[in-house]
Amino acid sequence: MHRFANPARFLRLSAVLLPWFAWATALLTAIGLYYALFASPADYQQGETVRIMYVHVPAAWMGLFVYTNMAIASAVALIWKHPLADVAAKASAPIGAAFTFLCLVTGALWGKPMWGTWWAWDARLTSMLILLFLYLGHMALVNAFDDPTRGAKAAAILALAGFINVPVIKWSVDWWNTLHQPASVTRVGLPAIDPSMLVPLLLMAVAFTTYFGTVLLLRIRSEIAAQKLRNIRMAQVRSAGHARSAA
């Protein structure tokens, strides 16, 4: 793991990986959307609105996946003081917040015709909303300090404390028997969903994951570049100060 702690090595490696992730995202999104919007059947009960699911479910998975990622990166940063883990956690938060927001919005759009309401105070929906607030709190805390390392450490502790919410979301539909339907893919035994709908769903899920990889790599790279710029500017100010005091 410490092999990748070197930012220069990370920059070289990510430059190689980035185009692969980007092309995989473009390709999988195109195929996934074609299957989701045209080549899959409409549901016998939900009609065409079932197609919202192909965005909604992967977005929800990603909301949880990104938070888990962020918590692991935070733990690595706190325990081994890995210099890139802090950057990775910081870069993940806005992406995860966007996925969670997308999940909530598409859920509302699906809920209006299906449940007859935009929003219900159901356990799954509420815990997802809490997840969004945890992301927003993380983003606010990272930027709340004059010293960026201080913000990164505080945010890492917050990310770990908030991780308690992830299993609650995952099993909320089993613990509380409320409006949101229980899991039909990630359950013991065969998925309770027809292959004609499962295939586009999984395609979209993989596309979302590679999209996350692409944006994460880009954001980490730009964060490293921003740190370099900051250091250069500090050095310039310092040398200008020396020159003035010498004159």
Binding site: I130, F133, L134, L136, G137, A140, L141, A144, F145, D146, R150, G151, A154, I157, L158, G162, N165
Partner: peptide, 18 residues
């Protein structure tokens, strides 16, 4: 967590209320 942060009070509510 918010010791020494800018606008600690508002930030605290955002972190803790969820």
């Amino acid at each position: 967590l918010v010791l020494g942060a800018r606008r600690g009070g508002v930030l605290l509510s955002l972190l803790i209320l969820p």
